[in-house]
Structures are given as C-alpha cells and as structure tokens.
C-alpha cells in the first residue's frame, strides 16, 4: 500500500507536467521517446551501479569495523572500554561532509607524512568515510544486541571451558544476531542515502549524475524529482528485505 501511494504521487507529478502550459514543466529532458531524453535517462540511471557498490562495500566494512569497536567496549578492562567509548562518541559527532573532505583531501597528506604513498580516489574515499562514520552506529547496535543476552549464557559457557572467542562465536553472537540483524539492515538505508555526499568529491553516482544533467539542461525540478524517486526505489527494496528478515527472525524466535 505504501509503495502504491508513492507511485500514485509520481503519476500526479507527471500529469501536472503534461497538462501545464509550456515552459513551466519540462519532462522532455527525460522523455524516453526522444533521442536526447533517452540519453539523459540512461546517464542518470547509470548512477545506480556506483551508488549500490558504494553502499554495499561501505556497509560491509562498517559491519566488521563496528564489531571490532563494540567488543572492547564491553570488556572488563576499563582502558579498552574507554577507547571504544571515545571512538563512538567522537565519530558520531562528526558530520559526514566534513569527514568526507578530511578523508579525501587530508588523509593522503597525513599518510604521505608517515611515508605511506597511497592515493585515495573518490570511490575509496567515499567508502572509507561512509564506513567509519557508520561504524559508530553499528557498534552501538552490536552493543545493545550483545548486552541483551543474559549474563548466565556467558557464565554457562565459561563453566564448560569456552574461552572468550569461543563464547562469542558459539554462544553470544548467534543469539544476539536476531536482535542485531534488523537494525543493521535498517542502518544500510542510511548508508544508501548518505552515499549522495560522495557526489561532492566527484563520484559518478546518482546525485552527481543528476547534478551534471541539471547543469547542461537546466531542468532542476524534473531531474531532481527523478533523482528522489531513484533513491526511493532503492530504499523501498531494502526495507522490503528488512521486513522479510524481521518476519523470519520473529518466526524463528517463536519456534524457540
């Protein structure tokens, strides 16, 4: 029903365009029946692959980084706990755009001064920024999920001789996963949306391509409308998957 509402809105907008006097609306820029319109659409839609690649790789890195940050945050060692806490608070406080500039323009300078000559291109700069920025949130998701598992589980694992790694691997994480997975998947939606910032460092993803066509065609309303629907489609697909996942987890839980 939600999807239908969006599609309905989309057609209302299109109808507005067709029925209004010439000059107000210019859907011709993305009219697939004309040669130039088709070229434009192909160019705009071509951004999907970059946006999706960026989001998936960044999400994957964030999932790993988040766990690496979360585990010391729950240790008995106050030093490890503090480091984890500082990381989360610090990273969470930085807006994405400044962090992106810092990673893209600043980090290579820092690396160079340390004798490491690595060129960070727009693709990896964006991924790194998205992953680091998101990892503070995934770390909190892990923490909440792991702490929701009763202390007795860890104790029982210890009394049958399991070490820390084995306890996490075989006892805690498998149980925490059903609490962790749905919010983690939700977090993926944020990454997809935040990936739009990669446009400012020249990454040819959805937003960047829309900007480029706007500059040449000067039809911002139509092109940005299409852009919004492009993200909408992506996010709707992901949230369907999330919902399916939640249902599956829920039914597993009731089975015990």
């Amino acid at each position: 029903m939600k999807i239908n509402t969006y599609i309905f809105l989309f057609f209302i907008l299109l109808l507005c365009g067709c029925s209004s006097p010439p000059g107000t609306w210019g859907w011709y820029v993305i009219n697939p029946n004309t040669q130039s319109g088709l070229t434009n659409i192909k160019f705009l839609i071509g951004g999907f692959s970059s946006t999706i690649q960026l989001s998936i790789i960044a999400a994957f890195m964030s999932i790993i980084l988040g766990l690496i940050v979360a585990l010391p945050g729950m240790s008995n060692n106050i030093f490890l706990r503090t480091i984890s806490r500082i990381y989360v608070e610090f990273i969470r406080a930085i807006p994405l755009l400044p962090m992106l500039f810092w990673v893209f323009y600043g980090l290579p300078v820092v690396l160079k001064s340390m004798g490491i000559n690595i060129n960070i291109d727009a693709f990896w700069g964006a991924i790194l920024t998205l992953a680091i920025s998101d990892s503070a949130f995934t770390a909190e998701i892990y923490r909440a999920g792991i702490q929701s598992i009763q202390k007795g589980q860890t104790e029982a694992a210890q009394t049958v001789g399991l070490n820390y790694y084995q306890t996490m691997r075989y006892v805690i994480l498998p149980q925490a996963l059903r609490r962790i997975l749905p919010p983690l998947a939700n977090q993926f939606i944020y990454i997809v949306k935040m990936s739009a910032f990669a446009s400012v460092i020249g990454m040819q993803e959805l937003t960047r391509r829309a900007n480029e066509i706007v500059v040449t065609e000067y039809r911002p309303l139509e092109i940005y409308t299409l852009l919004i629907f492009e993200y909408l489609i992506l996010v709707l697909i992901i949230s369907q998957v999330v919902r399916w996942l939640e249902r599956k987890m829920g039914s597993d839980e009731s089975k015990g």
């Binding site: 104790e155 029982a156 009394t159 399991l162 084995q166 498998p174 015990g256």
Partner: peptide, 29 residues
C-alpha cells in the same frame, strides 16, 4: 576444567539442540 556448575536458571544455550549443548564444551575446550 575441574569444576562443573549447575545454575538455578539452567542457563542452557537456547539456540542449540540438547546434544549440541552437551558437545560444545568437549569439542571446543
């Protein structure tokens, strides 16, 4: 490794079968 413990709340591993509950320690530890 010398001391076994039984808890008031059992603390079995709910995501594992009975037999897996029993073999987890012997296999890994």
């Amino acid at each position: 490794s010398d001391v076994g413990m039984v808890f008031q709340q059992f603390n079995l591993f709910p995501h594992l079968s009975v037999i897996q509950n029993l073999t987890l320690g012997p296999i890994n530890a």
